[in-house]
Design a protein around this nucleic acid. Structure first.
Lengths: 311, 311
DNA sequence: AGGCAAGATGCTCATATGAGCAGATTGATG
DNA sequence: CATCAATCTGCTCATATGAGCATCTTGCCT
């Protein structure tokens, strides 16, 4: 359209050449107001695109939509970088920022584990809070020795807040229900579980239901176990508990052998912060969000858009 | 830096959330002025990027630099599309726009030929001018039959301006100097050449010095001729005349067999419009621009940047 | 043709913004 | 520790801009 061409010229003069609307009007023989209106339209039509390019930028619009649509307390969405990935780091940084700014500071913070949370821990600055007690929410897994595994993650978070840490001295999944019950009956374990269940805030991630799962990596489950779970509708795990698209436990048997606070606690919590990054986790993320497991979501733009798609 | 993070937050609130600087100040406990300054910095540092996304957008900044650096009368630079090519079309459109807006309207317009100029001709709207006589500047080549070749191009431009056309009834390059002189001595040919030399404006492109050249395609030169020219320093041709990086004729022998107005006319002309698109033509474009063959340059962003690089 | 609704235009006026400046703060230096 | 330069801060004031409204076009239906 002819009008559109003028819009382009006006936008160029205004944004590239820093001319005033008056000047542009004079130049193009348009009234000052016409120029203003053309600029508004140009922005609306997306001819003028204003973008904030920064690893720590956020997508406030998407955040608002997510909060609205899924009844969250808050959402933090960071732009996914164009090329390859710095996505995890950006999301982790954002989660760290959120934790640091969170008020009131929780006295106890329950944490799960995973690559994502490890990244969050590393992104937290020293002194991000003071006197926060960090409690593990589910059975320990030593993701990889070097970085100290699940325990190391909790310790890092606690240290940087000059706080204490309560580790859960238990495997994630046990082979027999009886063993699991025995472990839970142990005084130290029971105490940690109580502390975890009563944490004032939760910080957790979820894993997709595929062979890359940390449970497989650590030998708690075999690749075929995971396949079977997927076949039965599992979309991923939260605190080691595999759930289907509606958020229900897929295999109660397995669940009974899993050590950690149960998902109801997350649902009931006022502040349960879910951190997720990456395309592989869209399905489980959708479930976590729609089934009310989290009240705060921290994620990347791609995931956010996936969560906003119809159905 | 800490400051930078605040800049990002401020920019988000201002540009994404349409908050006023006052509001942002209140929100972030900054003075209104601080907010304003942060925004200015954010723009300067490129954290806020304002982009005009439109096939007919232009790069006024680059245009100004080109005019300045190379002493041009005017420059038109269109953004190169991200992915593959619509570059030629965009440049052609821009050239057509430039011609249409050009004042005073030239009584006679000298044109060369080539894929690029063909695209320009097609982009010109009916009635882009009235009563312009179009004259061919150099020997005819029938690029491809379908679209009517060099003659068709000139005819199209003339028709759309309800004007006349003067075709140059001659091959581009002749085998013997004597034949060339004989042809030029022909009354009709001589008349056209005079008309061409005296045109009030010139519109031309250049070809790179490689086997894709239209001269090879049309059998005026062999692939090995072109190779030889390149070896002797030719970077491309303008009006069928091969020149080196300094704009000098590479092979006077060959040049003497080439029919068309000579390059001096372009250098002397007040309005000689050079249209070029595509990465293959950076070298010849540089030569045309630096050796003063054109007074107006129409090109794409990539070429423009290449022309602005040091040396 | 006449009349009417939808949209565009140019205005007034309140508000948002940037330039320029004076005072305050910081940090380096003797 | 005093001094000073360099930067930063919050201000006044002039200017640029958007909201809201009356008026004018335009196209459409009767």
């Amino acid at each position: 359209m002819e009008e559109e061409l003028i819009m382009v010229r006006v936008a160029e003069l205004y944004y590239d050449e820093d001319k005033t609307q008056d000047e542009i009007g004079a130049l193009l023989k348009l009234s000052r107001w016409k120029v203003g209106r053309l600029l508004t339209q140009a922005r609306e039509r997306g001819i003028v695109r204003i973008e904030i390019v920064h690893p720590r930028a956020r997508r406030l619009g998407l955040e608002r939509q997510l909060v609205e649509r899924h009844g969250l307390t808050a959402a933090v969405v960071v732009p996914s970088p164009d090329g390859d990935d710095g996505t995890l780091e950006r999301v982790a940084q954002a989660a760290a920022d959120y934790l640091t700014a969170m008020r009131p500071v929780p006295r106890t913070l329950g944490v799960s584990w995973g690559r994502t949370l490890r990244a969050v821990a590393e992104s937290l600055p020293d002194g991000w809070a003071t006197g926060v007690t960090v409690v593990q929410l589910n059975g320990g897994v030593s993701l990889n020795r070097r970085s100290g595994g699940a325990a190391g993650l909790a310790v890092t978070i606690a240290q940087r807040a000059s706080g204490h840490v309560s580790l859960l001295p238990s495997p994630a999944i046990l082979e027999r229900v009886e063993t699991k019950q025995a472990i839970e009956a142990d005084r130290t374990v029971a105490a940690v579980l109580v502390e975890a269940a009563e944490a004032q805030a939760f910080l957790f991630t979820a894993g997709p239901c595929d062979a890359t799962s940390a449970h497989v990596e650590n030998g708690y489950l075999s690749a075929s176990d995971v396949e079977e779970l997927a076949r039965r509708g599992a979309v991923g795990d939260v605190l080691g508990r595999y759930i289907d698209a509606d958020g229900n436990i897929v295999d109660p048997q397995l669940d009974a052998r899993t050590v950690g606070v149960d998902l109801g606690r997350l649902r009931a919590a006022k502040r349960s912060i879910f951190v997720t990054a990456g395309d592989a986790k869209h399905d489980i993320a959708r479930t976590v969000v729609t089934s009310g497991l989290c009240s705060v979501l921290v994620t990347d733009e791609t995931t956010a858009r996936a969560l906003l798609e119809e159905r």
